[in-house]
Amino acid sequence: MNGFSASRVLAILVKEFKQLTRDRLTYAMVLVLPVVQLMLFGYAINTEPRHLATAVLVQEDSRFARSVGAALKNSAFFDVVAQARSPAELDAMIRRGEVQFAVTIPGDFTRRVARGDKAQILVEADATDPAATGGAVAALAALPAQALAHDLKGALSPLGQGQPPFDVVVHARYNPEAVTAFNIVPGLLGVILSMTLVMMTALSVTRETERGTMESLLATPLEPIEVMVGKLTPYVMVGLVQTTIILLLARFLFGVPMAGGWIGLTLAISLFIIGSLALGFLISTLARSQLQAMQMSVFYILPSILLSGFMFPFRGMPAWAQAIGQLIPVTHFLRVVRGSLLKGQGLGDQWRELLALLAFVCVVTALAMARYRRTLD
């Protein structure tokens, strides 16, 4: 038996480096994935979001009311993006998720402040994601002392001393006890379906290519859409079973409220399952091995977890990260799931997200059909 040879080890090293450069996907993953992770964790992830979308309903046109509105705009936590004309319009904005906060300044605000009669303003927070509102709600404690500091002068100066000139009543809607499970558990539905369906489909089809059985399938007169439907239908059933199990556990194990919106939720689940399976099929047409299929699946799943609003507040991310997140189907699916279970949203509140999921299904299916090959060459 020959002893240790440095030249033979060097030969193996050269061979492995050449193999690595030939496998372009693996080579790209080695170089790109650390950069992507660094950019996401370094710039996109923010656990204390600021400049949150806020709508204001001003029921009186007064100097004090304008000062409160200006104080909100000057805050680092609130961006006033809309002026509601009625309580119903304000309620619709926060229910649809268009704003994170809804502020109501009542019609007797100035009179109560001038009399020292326990004036109040109402701040309603969309608390479906407690992490997104926690810092902003804490910042509201300083609002009464700062908002009217320049107005309470002269004869009104005693009102600015001692007790605050008004109180901020915070109403945390949809998750008043700030239970983290109410946000995380519904979100897990999208993450689990993505991880299992995309990866299972991609590996299943690629496995047939590696074993040679795909060559026999390609020799048949089957059309691409027929192959796709036949191979993906069993996994649709798998996705439906997973969905049922997750929703039952969410209700009976974690106490997640089931507020309604079942029509929109059913449509979203159906579209998301079909789209995830079609994406897995598309990945299988691009990958030459199961390892490549798994790598490509991970490259899709990682942004889906980090940029969809599942783990970190979506509105806390910079604009460029939110733009990328809008392209990820999990983002829209999570909005429908949380909106249905926690808010009881109807189709009128969810149609934008459902259209985004439908577009995802159409685009991915078309690409998968275009990539499907009649031969293994």
Rank of each mutant, 00 (worst) to 15 (best):
M1E: 06
M1S: 09
N2C: 09
N2Y: 12
G3S: 03
S5G: 03
R8Y: 01
I12R: 03
Q19V: 05
T21D: 10
R22Q: 06
T26V: 04
Y27L: 12
Y27T: 10
M29K: 00
L31F: 11
L33A: 15
P34V: 07
V36M: 06
Q37H: 11
L52D: 11
A53L: 07
V58W: 14
Q59F: 13
D61W: 07
S62M: 02
R63D: 05
A65E: 12
V68P: 06
A70L: 14
N74A: 06
S75K: 12
S75C: 10
V81I: 03
Q83E: 12
A84R: 09
S86V: 08
A92H: 00
A92R: 02
M93H: 15
R96K: 04
G107K: 13
R112H: 00
V113T: 10
D117H: 06
D117L: 10
A119P: 11
V123S: 05
V123R: 02
E124S: 15
E124L: 15
T128V: 00
D129H: 13
T133N: 01
T133G: 11
G134N: 11
G134W: 02
L140G: 01
Q146Y: 01
Q146C: 08
L148T: 12
A149K: 14
L152C: 11
G154R: 05
A155R: 08
A155E: 14
Q161F: 11
G162M: 14
P165Q: 13
P165M: 06
D167V: 00
V168M: 15
V170H: 13
A172F: 02
R173P: 08
R173A: 06
P176E: 13
T180W: 08
N183I: 08
I184A: 07
V185G: 13
G187V: 07
M199L: 03
M200C: 01
M200K: 12
R207C: 03
R207F: 05
E208Q: 10
L217W: 01
L222C: 15
E223W: 09
P224T: 07
P224Y: 13
I225G: 02
G230T: 13
G230V: 05
T233L: 15
T233D: 05
Y235V: 12
M237L: 04
V238T: 14
L240I: 15
V241N: 07
Q242S: 14
T243M: 03
F254V: 12
V256H: 11
P257Q: 09
P257E: 01
M258H: 08
M258L: 10
M258A: 02
A259V: 12
I263Q: 12
L267Q: 10
I269F: 03
L271C: 03
I273P: 07
S276G: 10
A278C: 04
F281N: 05
L282S: 04
A287V: 05
S289E: 01
Q292A: 01
M294D: 06
M296D: 02
L302T: 11
P303L: 05
M311G: 15
P313R: 03
F314I: 01
A321L: 09
Q326I: 00
I328R: 01
I328E: 09
L334I: 04
R335C: 00
R338A: 02
S340C: 08
S340P: 09
K343V: 01
K343W: 04
L347N: 07
D349M: 10
Q350M: 14
R352L: 14
L355S: 08
A356I: 03
A359F: 04
V361N: 03
C362W: 10
A366P: 05
A370W: 04
R371G: 06
R374Y: 00
L376N: 06
L376R: 06
